[in-house]
Write a protein that binds this DNA or RNA. Structure first.
Lengths: 238, 238
DNA sequence: GTCTATAACATGATAGAC
DNA sequence: GTCTATCATGTTATAGAC
């Protein structure tokens, strides 16, 4: 079982005009199915059907099902990292800390919800991936998380956070919450990803309390009671 | 495939002095392995070995692997619901809103981290469970979430939340964040579940910002920079 | 209640034609 | 590059002895 050289140059981007190559079709079908059904639940025959191909042909492009998963995960982390970098590049120099966070949260959420199933596979199937594949994906994931750590370190340097907060803890809380939105956003989230990013950022930065710590009461509509039995298909309980 | 009558009376509690019955041993082994490895990744032989039994013998107690999963999930939701009810029962009458939330968050986290693998299976394997099993578990899960909705509705009635907040959204944010702690608490969380509950509640209620909205600066130590490459084995990225 | 043995099936992977 | 076999293996589930 060979698990090196998981991705190639053309995995990352291919000409939009050309019809996708065979390898690319397999890769995209696998990403979609892995995200949707899980790794173990997806058979090579599923992937072949979705790629307009027969199962045996997949082995011309990939050595094994595990290597296919490795390529999907690697592509995903490359894309979400690129989106982080692009968000940082497009950041105005004088932007306030909370707005800076909001833009990065938005980039992260857009990478998940808009930029295809490669990124989401990291949330959906990474945990249950075979050990060899998981080990292969960890360095890229840690590198991505390190970028977030830098972001939080800068908040600390600017002294805009509550004194004594655990930066690593807060970072993981925010990212895991953002990732978990995949489970329920279609069901009861705000309508757009922009709204979701704003809601998440505001909750994280300001909390939900109207009174503490010594803030003045806002004017405006009171919160409306929620419909108690939510939607069928609870995906966040417990 | 019969999926009704997933649990029996003795699944919920059995005498502590007696050695566990065969059915109970199978159920607990299954819960543990499902949570640890996933449903598809766990074979009946795995469960049999962990139950000091042979694979064929499992079918004396359960009709199918799916029914076994259904019993695990049903037991889990019964236990976490019981913990919620107990937390409410033990609640002082004059308790402040944030403390009320903290106690329920603690009960939820203890149900996950302390009260065994039945509850955690809902977080770990529910999403990838076979359709029939998932459909069977949804009503109990919704009933549990409805208890949280009542809690949030009471906050709204008491007007302790920011005006205009979406109660359903905030509830799901909190619960999904709490559930996600399963992925990383052992790695970089606070030391005790009590500390985790407090940290989660404070973040949710107050946010992380030191300055907004118009709060006075605290005295105390400044946040310390986080070690940038966190731990190996990132489980929350992206 | 638990065992052994095995049926029935699905899956990842390979070989060789085209 | 893709196809049609087919192999080898592992898995759920059943049958019947003890």
């Amino acid at each position: 079982m060979v698990l090196t050289e998981a991705t190639t140059e053309q995995d990352r981007c291919h000409d939009r005009d050309e019809p996708p190559t065979g390898r690319q079709r397999v890769l995209e079908a696998a990403a979609w199915l892995f995200h949707r059904q899980g790794y173990r639940e997806t058979t090579l025959r599923d992937i072949a059907t979705a790629s307009a191909m027969k199962a045996g042909s997949i082995y011309y492009h990939f050595d094994s099902k595990e290597q296919l998963l490795a390529a999907v995960l690697e592509t995903g982390i490359e894309r979400i990292t690129a989106d982080f970098v692009e968000a940082a590049r497009a950041m105005p120099v004088d932007v306030a800390p909370r707005e800076r966070l909001r833009r990065h949260v938005l980039a992260h959420l857009e990478a998940l919800f808009i930029h295809g199933p490669f990124t989401t596979s990291h949330v959906t199937v990474f945990k249950n991936a075979p050990n060899a594949v998981r080990a292969l994906a960890i360095p890229s994931r840690d590198a991505y998380e390190a970028r977030w750590a830098e972001l939080f370190d800068r908040f600390a340097t600017e002294a805009v956070l509550k004194p004594g907060v655990d930066l690593a803890l807060q970072r993981v809380l925010l990212l895991s919450t953002a990732n978990a939105t995949l489970d329920w956003f279609d069901r009861l989230g705000p309508h757009t990803v922009e709204d979701l990013a704003a809601a998440l950022t505001n909750q994280f930065w300001l909390g939900v309390s109207a009174l503490e710590p010594g803030a003045k009461r806002h004017r405006g509509s009171s919160p409306q009671p929620s419909s108690v039995p939510t939607a069928q298909g609870s995906t966040t309980t417990p």
